[in-house]
Design a protein around this nucleic acid. Structure first.
Lengths: 131, 131
DNA sequence: CTGATCCGCAACTATACTCATTACGAATAG
DNA sequence: CTATTCGTAATGAGTATAGTTGCGGATCAG
């Protein structure tokens, strides 16, 4: 939505929340994370709201993914394995390596996709749908 | 652990649980999923337990991932977006496309890795560690 | 046949996480 | 000054994860 909006006319968290069908506080929390990552900026007061700080074509989905600080794709069991077991004492380190490779492939794919592309695709979908 | 174990000497869920430092029921729940996918088999009774049904080199991490039925890597917001908004009525379909590409890259990476490789890496880690 | 294992499954609980909601202070434009 | 909007904290409902107990069914040794 921000990519679609003119820079001079920022979007309020309430309008965005209306589109997502949720509440403004939830939106502000997420936008706060994106703001800390330098992707968006907020303006308080009358006529205020949110706008992109960088061009939509320069923001990759990976930028967004990292900004919101998602946890690892494949989590390890939260309890320490048994160090008396050959597998137990080596499996976590080993799995982190293997999972890391898969996660890297995932991130590379996200890095190739930009907000501008997503916006364009959404608008194309609009044209082709018969209403 | 199952890949390391001889076929003739199945592992009980209690032994596995001891290595993971959790309880047998949790292990049985997961192995039940792997069993339905044909990756492992269980044997009740004295001397029973679990064993691999296929060679460890033929089981990819993707096989395991799909067997445990993990949800999508990137979930959509659980409430329907506002259909009166251009973005709202197109964003879910659009994002599913983009997320799907990233998830496909992730799965391709998992497909290239096998249980046999993981076991070997864990055993190598054992050799190189100074105890 | 009997008893000791061991799986399979259901029920219940504790803990944690996600999101909705309310509230209130700070910043800003007119 | 006042209306608006962000920023953040507190609270609660709903859901997910995993720990625990219990018990029935299958299997094997004797």
């Amino acid at each position: 939505m921000l990519a679609q909006q003119s820079e001079a006319d920022p979007l309020t968290s309430e309008r965005i929340a209306g589109s997502v069908n949720t509440n403004p506080v939830f939106i502000r929390r997420i936008l706060g994370l994106l703001s800390r990552a330098g992707l968006v900026a907020s303006q308080p007061g009358v006529g205020g709201g949110w706008r992109l700080r960088r061009d939509a074509a320069s923001i990759s989905l990976l930028d967004v993914y990292e900004a919101v600080g998602a946890g690892p794709l494949l989590a390890l069991h939260h309890r320490m394995p048994n160090p008396d077991c050959l597998i137990g004492r080596n499996i976590q380190r080993t799995l982190l390596n293997y999972f890391g490779e898969a996660e890297a492939a995932f991130k590379q794919a996200l890095a190739r996709q930009t907000i501008a592309q997503v916006l364009e695709t959404a608008q194309e979908g609009e044209l082709s749908s018969p209403a």
